[in-house]
Amino acid sequence: MNIFRISADLLHLASFFILIFKMKATKSCKGISFKTQLMYTLVFTCRYLDLFHVLGMMITFNFAHITGLTLYNTFMKILFLAASYYIVYLMRTELKSTSDDARDTFVLWHILAPCAVLALIFNAQFTILEILWTFSIYLEAVAVMPQLMLLIETGEADSLSSHYMFAVGGYRALYLVNWVYRYATEPYYSNWIAWIAGFVQTALFGDFFYYYFVKIMSGDAALKLPT
């Protein structure tokens, strides 16, 4: 565990809290893409199925392979799952009337189908768990596309929404640094699937980061895209 990895995870965790805080404080999920949030629940569900493996080891008192890192990962995985499901739940119950569904027009099959096909072809091992993990990595990389499309459609984002997007995008950028660090310091460490997907994911945020920093530098509350 290095400083880049832990910072990335904390930034990711912060993104959930920012979004939940925004929704609770303003009683609105305006400007937030339900489709992107739904994809994140699918991403975490497919990726963290190994929680059952850890749970299985715990209830059989088989602690031999459970390390501090396992406990940390398990704790964070449960938090990420709970937070993403809670966000989707909020957007479909008490905040449904404020949801930007009419403008959230991205067709999810356009990312779901290619990610599923790629996961079946390019994976480290042809097992159900590994294919679902790979699918989640590919899907996460592009899951922000409905959110970016909604942002372009709207032309601007309020302060908390833009901080949220910065946290979500920034976390993967920090993971890129973490991978470089690990590659340099750990023997035999490589994971091309995560690296390429992580690079694509970060690149998709490129424009957004630019406008976010312009906003921060100019001291504006809202992020505005050029018309």
Binding site: D50, H53, A194
Partner: peptide, 10 residues
């Protein structure tokens, strides 16, 4: 050390 999970990152 063998990890409890398949992958050691989130």
């Amino acid at each position: 050390a063998k990890l409890a999970e398949g992958h050691d990152e989130l």
